[in-house]
């Protein structure tokens, strides 16, 4: 059926020719439509089926911890990443090597064992050492919840990745830019903050966005310490009711909804940034 008008069209034009036109169905983002359809179908299941709804009411409250842990880990990682990223480019031999050691070291360890190491060994030992002093001097003790221990571990790991992002972003700014800044008498610091960093942000923001999404997913690892975020609630629900299908269905739905809408936002932001950039040398 579809071949009929096409053949007529060809006939009218005469010989077939190479064309730069692409039909709408070739360029249409089918994948997006498919994803939306799947999410709608999942939402429909949860809204209409009792067991799914039960799973939802038990698991969804974990959103709060998932989101706060994500925000905390991202913020701390951002600070670590900025300091370590600029540290790697520092003139100071100590900061350069400390930053480099941290980045290389951390990136070589998988997240899960690092979470256990930090939560069960490093934090207890450090707090013990600290608290004997703090207690004696101030009558106060330092405590770190398991949620914070795991969150800090995530921040340590993503801080190392972000350090590379910052370093790469800063290095992506042509050296002529800082030379122009310095030649006008701006100090190193002023040149960095007013000339280099604002331009580096173009290269930094998109991968930071990806890391935000990655952190969000990796907060599911907090479950190994019993933190009641989404994954842990899903585990508990499934284990206590034997409704594994419903439990992990809802868990997946929540993560998908969050990550997919975040990447949509991110791609809109990126599109805007490249549009602003058009025509720039």
């Amino acid at each position: 059926m579809a071949t009929e008008p096409r053949r007529v069209q060809r006939g009218r034009r005469g010989a077939t020719r190479v064309t730069d036109e692409r039909p709408w169905w070739d360029t249409f983002p089918w994948w997006g439509a498919i994803i939306v359809a799947i999410l709608l179908w999942m939402a429909w299941q949860i809204l209409t089926k009792e067991n799914y709804e039960l799973a939802w009411t038990r698991i969804a409250p974990g959103l709060r911890l998932t989101i706060t842990s994500t925000l905390q880990a991202f913020t701390i990682a951002l600070i670590i990443g900025m300091v370590a990223g600029m540290g790697q480019l520092s003139r100071n031999v100590v900061s350069r090597n400390v930053a480099r050691t941290y980045v290389e070291f951390i990136r070589g360890i998988p997240i899960l064992p690092l979470i256990f190491t930090v939560a069960l060994i490093v934090v207890p030992e450090v707090t013990d050492a600290l608290n004997s002093r703090l207690d004696a001097w101030f009558g106060w003790e330092f405590k770190l919840s398991f949620q914070m221990r795991a969150t800090v571990t995530l921040a340590l790991i993503y801080g190392a990745y972000m350090a590379e992002i910052f370093r790469g972003g800063i290095q992506s700014v042509p050296p002529g830019q800082s030379e122009a800044g310095r030649s006008l008498g701006l100090t190193r610091r002023q040149t960095m903050s007013s000339v280099v960093l604002p331009q580096a942000m173009r290269a930094i923001i998109p991968p930071l966005g990806n890391d935000f999404i990655a952190i969000l997913k990796d907060t599911s690892l907090l479950s190994v310490l019993g933190v009641l975020e989404i994954t842990q609630r899903g585990r508990q629900f499934s284990a206590s009711t034997f409704k594994f299908r419903e439990g992990y269905f809802v868990v997946s739905f929540i993560y998908l909804l969050l990550t997919l809408s975040l990447s949509l936002l991110l791609s809109l932001l990126e599109r805007r940034m490249t549009r602003d950039r058009k025509g720039q040398r």
């Binding site: 042509p174 002529g176 830019q177 030379e179 122009a180 800044g181 000339v195 604002p198 331009q199 720039q280 040398r281």
Partner: peptide
Amino acid sequence: FQQFNLFPH
């Protein structure tokens, strides 16, 4: 400079 090096932002 040869390449102007204006601050594009």
